[in-house]
């Protein structure tokens, strides 16, 4: 892939949760880091998230959820990605996620799970690693 084409990232708020401070921060910070970022806005269904990700041809989906419904809703997103055979999209997750839930989410295909206190530089370096070089 040409190094001139910025990688595309979808930041998605799945479920009914309205906590979007972290998501909005990331949208802006990732744009400043040179990525093309699409933000879904709050209260999207897994179906809407996956549809947008495919339509927008993104490289990465970053899901954010702080309501505690991550096990159910992130699983549904992963399932839809598989059904759509879109497994080339890299999935990241973030939110108030207890450590004990992380192995399950990783087994569903989430490459990284960011929990409260995760720094922007951690997220940027994980992206760089996954996307091979970054911007």
């Amino acid at each position: 892939m040409s190094t001139n084409t910025p990688k595309r990232i979808l930041i998605g708020k799945v479920g009914l949760d309205g906590h979007d401070r972290g998501a909005k921060f990331l949208v802006r910070a990732l744009r400043n880091a040179g990525y093309e970022v699409i933000y879904t806005g709050i209260r999207r269904t897994p179906e809407q998230i996956v549809r947008t990700a495919i339509d927008e041809d993104v490289d990465v989906i970053g899901l954010s959820l702080l309501s505690g419904a991550h096990n159910e809703l992130f699983a549904r997103v992963a399932q839809l990605i598989e059904e759509e055979q879109a497994e080339d999209i890299i999935m990241f997750a973030g939110g108030t996620i207890p450590d004990k839930d992380i192995p399950h989410l990783k087994s569903l295909g989430f490459r990284q799970v960011f929990t409260p206190g995760a720094s922007l530089s951690e997220i940027l370096s994980a992206l760089k690693e996954e996307l091979g070089g970054g911007e």
Binding site: G15, L16, D17, R43, T45, S67, G68, A69, N71, L73
Partner: peptide, 22 residues
């Protein structure tokens, strides 16, 4: 919980995963 706050019953499709959580 969020379904109650957004006016969905606990058995509504959009309530899935959210019932009793927050």
């Amino acid at each position: 919980d969020l379904p109650t706050q957004i006016g969905y019953d606990s058995d509504h499709a959009l309530s899935s995963g959210e019932v009793g959580k927050v």
